[in-house]
Design a protein around this nucleic acid. Structure first.
Lengths: 256, 256
DNA sequence: CAGTGGTCTAGACCACGCG
DNA sequence: GCGTGGTCTAGACCACTGG
């Protein structure tokens, strides 16, 4: 077959009116976008297997190799994972994934532990200007706001404030208690999958209240992590400001 | 051709004594390693073009597609970059690369600027135990240790201490002054290419001296970035501890 | 055993940069 | 025009998983 006997589905417009030239998006990008769309729309749900390469190739009228390139790109983004002999699966927020993809606090030996949590307070409210900016909400929208203390090995280490747009999380905090692994809960209870997060780190001084909660002196230095978590389509769904006592635990990153 | 009429160079041993079974490394991995080795050994230097896919494929007796997979993996690691119609090139520490790959401090508007630097002191010395651990040196080895203040828009923002193993940087600090863009200097003057870095972030209190240098109060919270920079072969080459005043500038990261 | 993904090849055409 | 990388296809065999 010539490079393309126009594959109908994806590229019905491609070269329909253009005998030559006219560079569209590459085929594998169109496949990528199609699959991405289905993930966003929850057509394929976290944990489930998606169709095989051959099936996708047949459906989209492209070669297996083209589908493979798209799939491998999505695997590189951690949206899918593949197991030889089994199939291709939609990533989910298991303990492990939450730990290694979205949690960067480790102990002196580099061991990662998911901390325990105790909720301090929780209420619905109108967005503050800052929250509206971070969550891209209109000035009058409602949010759920709650604070909690997090413990590593029984030692209070983090105080954090979390804000969620009520629109995506109806009944949150009033009908149910926030569990420890929030991302997994967002996914299972609300169908909201967190795919990426932007973080800004600064150093701040502990307030009186924080000092009391963490068992340290007021004014002691704390690491502030200001994090906006986003869905697959880049829409922000959670704003979290964490104040961490870094005397026993540190934030780690790898660059390059 | 059958999947492999044993390509001589890379896999002379592969299936030499094994009629079946015996899984070695995939071919594209062997190609990857061969190229990586040449980068480590400076056979191909930063900024230079490496041979074309066809040439490499011919040299290593594999198909163009196999070479391509290896090259694309190396591009994903930022060790190479490719320009259509031109060729494949070894990455170098340009201002841009230094800025976006190894520098994470940005202003309120997210704009990235490379700060100016003023060196405070610089001397050769025997390693401390901490330095020996970070740089993986024997207890009696010599290092160069220097401190500097860094300025964004004329405002002192960072105080940092940098330690280099003298072995890799003979004459550093005594015969030449440390320039502002260190990574580029390591590369051009010593042939040392920094390929990755591990960072640990904590919050600390400003010492009297730091407070004076940064124009803040003693005890004010500072962001400490403890960074070990490594070469292509993972050997550490620089240890840097930066104390940053994050009232005007922040550390940013992206996860997921 | 059949079906999945993983590796490898061969060859086509396209888009780009340069002489 | 020629050589580079970029996209796409077709088809082979291997390795793993499950029934």
């Amino acid at each position: 077959m010539d490079q393309k006997t126009p594959p109908d589905d994806l590229v019905s417009h491609r070269r329909a009116r253009a005998p030559k030239k006219l560079r569209d998006q590459p085929l594998y990008q169109q496949v990528d976008n199609t699959i991405r769309r289905r993930l966003i729309d929850n057509v394929w749900k976290p944990g489930e297997a998606i169709p095989s390469e051959m099936q996708l190739a047949a459906e989209m009228n492209v070669s297996q190799g083209t589908v493979r390139k798209a799939l491998n790109d999505l695997v590189a983004e951690n949206l899918l994972y593949r197991r030889q002999g089994l199939g291709t699966f939609v990533s989910e927020h298991t303990e492990h994934r939450a730990l290694f993809l979205f949690f960067s606090i480790v102990g002196d030996e580099g061991a990662r532990l998911l901390p325990e949590s105790r909720v301090l307070d929780c209420a619905e409210d109108i967005v503050t200007p800052k929250e509206a900016e971070r969550l891209q909400l209109a000035p009058s929208e409602m949010v759920v706001r709650f604070r909690r203390v997090r413990f590593f090995d029984e030692i209070a280490t983090i105080v954090e404030t979390i804000t969620l747009p009520l629109e995506h999380f109806p009944g949150f905090g009033t009908e149910v208690d926030p569990p420890n692994n929030l991302f997994r809960f967002y996914q299972s209870a609300y169908g909201v999958t967190v795919a990426k997060a932007d973080e800004q780190l600064t150093a701040v001084s502990a307030t009186e209240e924080e000092a009391l909660l963490l068992g340290i002196d007021a004014g002691a230095p704390l690491l502030e992590i200001d994090r906006t978590a986003k869905m697959l389509d880049e829409r922000p769904v959670e704003w979290r400001v964490s104040h961490c006592d870094t005397t026993k635990y540190r934030y780690v990153a790898e660059r390059g």
